[in-house]
Design a protein around this nucleic acid. Structure first.
Lengths: 141, 141
DNA sequence: AGTATTCATTTCGTATACAAACTAATTTAA
DNA sequence: TTAAATTAGTTTGTATACGAAATGAATACT
């Protein structure tokens, strides 16, 4: 049904990769001043919404592979952003808590993220922004 | 101007990351049967359009960092997909040529990619597909 | 010519990503 | 109640990704 040759510039996988690459790179640069990476920041965001989540909870919400998450959490703990504590009722589970180092940083980091978002979509109208988000969500199902 | 707290689920960086993750994972699975990765395939595509391009040419077209490209080309050469030959006129430049191993594979790989594209966007109408591609291109500038 | 600069690519270090194998703890079932 | 299956998390191995430094080659400048 769809056998014509499509150049890679028209391939949705390529377009998503490059758009993500651009967005990620932009945010990454903004975060270097804080010593954080975009994914590390994402985990802090999740913990701001609910502190003490298990590693598995976080992975499920952020759609992060366990193997990936394990390393990210290690680096966050090494940087004293979080503390890992085994759940007293089920010692398989590790609960993640924010440290005091993170206090007061939330507004600044949110502002950076909002600016990054704005810059990435600066060429789009408000309708287009809303639509793009909707389409990306539809893709993930 | 944009100081309200946005949950990460509404963050364009997050949405792009997850949509890309899904698309990439889908295509990656399809390609394992061939022993290729999505990026390796992308480079073959670029060479099908024009064989003998330099590493720099390929990097520019595919928006790939030189450091990244170097490793990918090494692995492609190790798998006998490509051959690296220094340009006779400028020995700084390395030209990349497809090997005979790739012959006849193009239609199959294109079909896999088209199927991956279709599956990723299966929930979208034709108009939405066109629009999504346009918006992603707009983001890249 | 000889030196400085620029250019193409590689190397190194760090950080995602994910499959697969592994450990340890809990639950299920026989 | 003990063996089997499941679950949570880590480890290992491979593949992007990219900044920064290094290498080697070509060009520019004096």
């Amino acid at each position: 049904m769809n056998t014509e040759e499509t150049k890679y510039e028209d391939c949705i996988i390529f377009l998503l990769a490059k758009a993500y690459q651009k967005a990620h790179g932009n945010f990454k640069k903004r975060l270097t001043a804080y010593g954080l990476t975009p994914i590390q920041h994402l985990i802090l965001e999740a913990l701001w919404l609910e502190d003490g989540q298990s590693a598995g909870d976080i992975g499920k919400k952020l759609v992060l592979d366990g193997a990936t998450l394990s390393g990210v959490l290690d680096r966050l703990a090494a940087g004293d952003w979080i503390k890992k504590e085994p759940d007293p009722d089920d010692k398989r589970i590790i609960r993640i808590f924010l440290t005091k180092k993170v206090r007061g940083l939330r507004p600044k980091l949110s502002e950076e993220r909002n600016q990054a978002n704005d810059e990435i979509m600066r060429r789009l109208s408000l309708e287009e922004k809303v639509l793009l988000k909707r389409l990306l969500r539809d893709i993930q199902g």
